[in-house]
Design a protein around this nucleic acid. Structure first.
Length: 483
RNA sequence: GGUCCCAUCGUCCAGUGGCCUAGGACAUCACCCUCUCAAGGUGGAGACACGGGUUCGAAUCCCGUUGGGACUGCCA
């Protein structure tokens, strides 16, 4: 058996869909399982009205982020237009295709009550010449069945009589998807067509085209084997929609998901590695993946589970890796790439890389995505903390214990001989006891005054890193604010 | 409507006739840990759509019903 040659063939009509990413992954698995395997990217850009060059760039950058290196390509389907037209002409010459002048309205009028879908074959034997209004149709067999050999689903049979004479080239001469795709797959000697289930109904047509081309053209190319992957659906169990669902792979990158976490999660949609462990190295995924084991039913893309896995991947990073991974969010000016939809909440002058390095380990175990980091550490870098009013009211303005704590803390902290977390911790316990408050209660106003919030990294380490001067300033500012 | 696909906890998977009083993960609930929030630990609740067969024995095989979905373009 020759080495697998697989491809993904996205069209540049929008963001890089997470479903495409999953399809790419499964294709890539198959290529990587064989040392000679070939993974190809082909941009299917024959619909000029919907394509945009920026989406092509998006495909490249998303693929790069996911880490799916190409063995050949990227190819552009539009570069093969001549081959597509030649294929159409060969099919016409050998009688597999014919010109048709019917409009959709014509067909509908003729069919009347007939509910049989598709074209009625009116021009099949009329011998019409090409003109500006003639489409080229493929003459499908009227009897028999076409069996799609699908690695995921087994054999799927389609009655030929129910497959209408579909259009392979528009009246403009542009060759349509089915033929263009088949022509390119033959050219690229594709052995496995692995794609979404929405293409299953196209498979018999493409097999017909493939075999007709074997007879009409000088080339004989072995039919590929098919594998139709279960759809990715939303909560409503509908196919993920570009308009309504968060399907842009780029947006996950921008929110601070790690690509290996994202890939690991993707692998779990419709398949799973052996054993009970779901967080698995990529090499194991490649090794164990089998198309035959892919699930038959649609899968829901669960962002919550993805986020949880991402948190695990983040926590597994070394301190230095975490700091490096944080750069696009905390110091984007040092980073070659930065998230498109946000910026650090502080300026370059205010940021302190050494301080961030000290704080990072505290943050690392508290975030599930890198995008959450800025909000958690901004009080270190902003001149004044952003005060959450609800929290401030709760523990300072509307609680008499609040100002009392702040006042005592300002006094105690000012005279501390050593400024470190342990000493601050101890001092806070003592000043709380003097007021009849446990530590849980006593730390709250201090946290709110200094960080602006009731949640965040451990308080005493934070105070240590922030320094005495700023801490005291914020304590007094909050006191003044509550008066 | 037609064709095709699908059907195990709320979700994603495991399960390929007996190991299943159905396992894991996310989510959820309780408790523990704890300076907040997380993380972590322990425990709980939670599913084989339904009905017929086949078989000594079915979540696993067959048929039907019901329910969901995809496709049905001179888009890809």
């Amino acid at each position: 058996m020759s080495a697998p040659r697989v491809r993904i063939a996205p069209s540049p009509t929008g963001f890089f869909h997470v479903g495409t990413a999953r399809t790419a992954l499964f294709n890539w698995f198959i290529a990587r399982q064989d040392p000679e395997g070939v993974f190809i990217l082909r941009i299917e850009d024959t619909d000029e009205s919907r394509n945009r060059e920026e989406w092509v760039e998006g495909i490249y950058s998303a693929m790069a982020w996911l880490g799916f290196a190409l063995d050949e390509g990227p190819f552009r389907q539009s570069d093969n237009a001549a081959a597509h037209e030649a294929a159409a002409e060969m099919l016409r010459l050998s009688g597999y295709a014919y010109y048709c002048s019917c409009t959709a309205a014509d067909v509908a009028a003729r069919k009347g009550d007939d509910k049989t879908p598709g074209y009625d074959g009116f021009c099949r034997d009329r011998g019409i010449e090409r003109s500006e209004t003639t489409a080229l149709r493929f003459r499908t067999p009227r009897e028999g069945v076409t069996t799609v050999h699908d690695l995921v689903r087994g054999n799927v049979e389609f009655a030929n009589a129910l497959i209408d004479d579909f259009v392979i080239a528009k009246s403009s001469g542009t060759v349509l998807y089915a033929l263009a795709n088949v022509t390119d797959d033959r050219h690229d000697r594709i052995t496995h067509v692995i794609r979404g289930e929405e293409h299953l109904a196209n498979a018999p047509k493409q097999m017909m085209l493939w075999e007709a081309l074997d007879e009409s053209s000088p080339d004989f190319v072995a039919l590929p084997v098919f594998a139709h992957l279960p759809l990715l659906v939303n909560e409503q169990r509908k196919k993920l929609s570009k308009r309504k669902d968060p399907v842009a792979t780029e947006s996950y990158r921008d929110k601070g998901y790690l690509s290996n976490a994202f890939v690991n999660y993707l692998a779990l949609l419709g398949w799973s590695p052996r054993g009970d462990e779901e967080i698995v190295p990529l090499s194991t995924l490649v090794e164990e993946f089998r198309l035959e084991d892919v699930s038959h039913s649609p899968a829901f893309f669960d962002v919550k589970k993805l986020t949880h896995m991402n948190g695990e991947y983040i926590r597994a990073l070394s301190a230095d890796e975490f700091i490096a991974a944080s750069a696009p969010w905390v110091c984007p000016w040092t980073s070659a790439w930065r998230p498109s939809d946000r910026d650090a909440p502080w300026s370059e002058e205010l940021f302190d890389a050494e301080l961030f390095a000290r704080v990072a380990p505290l943050v690392q175990e508290r975030v599930a995505t890198l995008g959450e980091i800025p909000a958690m550490v901004e009080f270190f870098f902003l001149d004044e903390p952003r005060i959450d009013e609800v929290s401030f009211a709760k523990v300072i303005a509307n609680d008499p214990a609040g100002p009392a704590v702040l006042e005592r803390a300002a006094q105690r902290f000012e005279t501390l001989t050593t400024w470190d977390a342990a000493t601050l911790h101890e001092a806070t316990i003592e000043l709380g006891e003097a007021l009849g408050l446990n530590l849980r209660k006593a730390q709250a106003p201090i946290r709110c005054a200094v960080t602006g919030s009731l949640v965040g990294p451990p308080l005493f380490e934070s105070l240590e890193f922030l320094g005495r001067e700023k801490t005291l300033g914020r304590l007094r500012a909050a006191l003044a604010r509550s008066a």
